[in-house]
Computed example of a mutant assay.
Amino acid sequence: MAGLGFSGVRRSYDGVPALAGIDAEIADGEFVALLGPSGCGKTTLLRLIAGFEMPDTGTITLGGQVMAGPDRFVPPEDRNIGIVFQSYALWPHMTVAGNVAYPLRVRGVPTAERRRRVAEALDLTGLSALADRPPAQLSGGQRQRVALARCLVADPRAVLLDEPLANLDLALRAAMQDAFTAFHRRTGATMVYVTHDQTEALAMADRVAVMQAGTIRQFDTPEGLYDRPRDGFVAGFVGDGAVVALTAAPRPGAGRARVHALGQEIEARCDAGPPTHLCIRPEQVRLDPEGPIRARVSACAYQGGRFRLTLETEGETLIAHSARRALPGEALRLSIGMPWAFADPGAPPVAGLMQPA
Rank of each mutant, 00 (worst) to 15 (best):
G255P: 04
A24M: 12
D206E: 00
L62V: 08
R230F: 07
M54H: 09
D240G: 01
D220T: 07
R105M: 13
G291K: 07
R185C: 01
A2D: 08
R115P: 00
R308D: 06
A129M: 09
V106L: 15
R79N: 12
R286L: 10
L225H: 09
I49N: 11
G304W: 08
A323L: 13
M338Y: 15
R256W: 05
G253P: 10
P110V: 05
T247I: 01
A323E: 12
I293Q: 00
F180Q: 13
L161Y: 00
V96C: 15
A341P: 13
T43D: 02
L318Q: 12
T276I: 03
L46S: 07
A166Q: 03
E283V: 03
E314H: 12
T44R: 07
E312V: 02
R294I: 04
V96D: 15
G108F: 09
A27R: 14
R258T: 08
A149N: 04
K42T: 06
F219V: 04
L138Y: 02
W91K: 13
L46V: 03
L278D: 00
A147R: 10
V146L: 01
D240E: 15
A175E: 15
F233S: 09
A299C: 10
S298I: 10
G253E: 15
T95G: 14
T317N: 04
A343P: 02
M211W: 08
F73C: 11
A213D: 15
P274L: 05
G108K: 08
M94Q: 15
P135A: 09
G214S: 03
P135V: 08
L46G: 11
G141K: 11
A147I: 03
R251D: 06
D28S: 08
A201S: 03
A331K: 14
C300K: 00
G82I: 12
R185I: 07
G108V: 10
R325Q: 14
H184Y: 14
R217L: 02
P75S: 07
G141M: 11
A295Y: 01
